[in-house]
Simulated scan of single mutants.
Amino acid sequence: MTQSTSMEQHPDLMELRARYEAAGETTQAQMLEGMTMVAGLYAAISPWVIGFSATSFQLAMSNLVTGLALTLLALGFASAYSRTHNLSWVVPVIGAWLVITPFFVLDGPLTAGIVLSNVITGGVTVLCGLGIGSLGLMRKGR
């Protein structure tokens, strides 16, 4: 009789996890994760910073929820990138949502502050998400 090993102990899987763990510990990864967390926190508090929480409740709640989700994702990447790297595709999607949200969800007047805040935060989030997603693709020599 042969004894089968579990998938968890497969050498290729262990090597892949080690590569993702090493990628998550680089300075670039820490910078991207930190910037993503700051963007998420800003997105969550932006309705009160910019001052549209009273005029557009729906947009304020959208920014709060997406900002908190983004912050939690960034914390997950920072603490266990080898286990959470599969969720990195969500970050650019959240960033794109932040960019288009004022045009679809806004139930009050559309001001330059609202648009600029969401577009800049969303753009930074998309770039950070693309960077986080590409961390596992980097070679060891970099």
Rank of each mutant, 00 (worst) to 15 (best):
Met31Tyr: 10
Thr2Asp: 13
Leu116Asn: 12
Ala39Trp: 00
Met37Ala: 13
Leu72Thr: 13
Thr2Phe: 12
Tyr20Phe: 14
Ile120Leu: 15
Pro11Asn: 09
Pro92Leu: 03
Leu98Trp: 02
Cys128Trp: 03
Ala69Val: 13
Lys140Gly: 08
Leu16His: 12
Thr125Gly: 00
His10Ser: 06
Val99Leu: 04
Gly133Thr: 09
Phe52Gly: 00
Val91Pro: 01
Met61Val: 15
Ala44Arg: 03
Ser117Cys: 13
Tyr81Lys: 03
Ser117Gln: 04
Arg19Glu: 09
Phe104Ala: 12
Leu73Tyr: 13
Leu110Ile: 12
Met31Ile: 15
Ala96Arg: 01
Val90Gln: 12
Thr55Ile: 07
Gln3Glu: 14
Val38Gln: 02
Gly76Gln: 07
Val124Lys: 01
Pro47Tyr: 06
Gly34Trp: 06
Glu15Phe: 07
Tyr42His: 02
Ile120Asn: 01
Gln28Trp: 11
Leu32Val: 07
Val99Tyr: 00
His10Lys: 04
Ala74Arg: 05
Ile100Leu: 14
Leu87Thr: 13
Asp107Ser: 09
Thr84Asp: 03
Ala69Cys: 13
Leu68Ile: 15
Ser117Arg: 01
Glu25Asn: 15
Ser88Tyr: 04
His10Val: 02
Leu16Pro: 00
Thr101Val: 07
Met35Ser: 11
Phe103Pro: 01
Leu64Thr: 10
Trp97Leu: 05
Ser6Tyr: 06
Asp107Ala: 10
Leu106Gln: 12
Gly108Met: 00
Val119Arg: 05
Leu137Val: 08
Gln9Trp: 04
Gln58Lys: 09
Ala43Cys: 07
Gly136Phe: 05
Gly51Thr: 06
Asn118Val: 01
Ser53Ala: 15
Arg17Cys: 02
Ala44Glu: 02
Val105Ser: 04
Met35Glu: 09
Val90His: 05
Val124His: 01
Ala96Met: 13
Gly141His: 13
Gly51Pro: 06
Val99Gln: 05
Gln28Glu: 15
Arg17Ala: 10
Ala39Met: 09
Tyr42Pro: 00
Ala78Ser: 15
Ile50His: 06
Ala23Leu: 05
Val105Arg: 02
Leu106Thr: 14
Arg19Ser: 13
Ala69Thr: 14
Thr84Pro: 00
Thr125Glu: 02
Ile45Asp: 07
Ala60Cys: 08
Ile114Phe: 01
Ser82Lys: 09
Gly136Asn: 09
Ala74Tyr: 04
Ala22Val: 05
Gln9Asn: 14
Arg139Asp: 14
Leu130Trp: 14
Leu16Phe: 12
Ser117Gly: 15
Val124Glu: 04
Pro109Met: 08
Gly76Trp: 03
Ser46Tyr: 00
Gly108Tyr: 00
Ser82Tyr: 06
Leu13Ser: 11
Ser6Gln: 11
Leu41Gly: 15
Asp12Tyr: 11
Val90Phe: 11
Gln28Ile: 11
Ala112Asp: 11
Val99Ala: 03
Met61Glu: 14
Val115Trp: 02
Ser4Ile: 08
Ser88His: 06
Pro11Cys: 04
Ala78Glu: 05
Val91Asp: 01
Gln28Val: 12
Ala23Ser: 15
Glu8Cys: 02
Thr26Arg: 10
Glu8Val: 05
Thr2Leu: 11
Trp89Glu: 01
Thr36Asp: 07
Ser82Met: 02
Thr84His: 09
Pro47Ile: 06
Leu41Met: 14
Met14Pro: 00
Asn118Arg: 03
Gly40Thr: 01
Pro11Thr: 06
Gly113Ala: 11
Leu70Asn: 06
Glu33Ser: 10
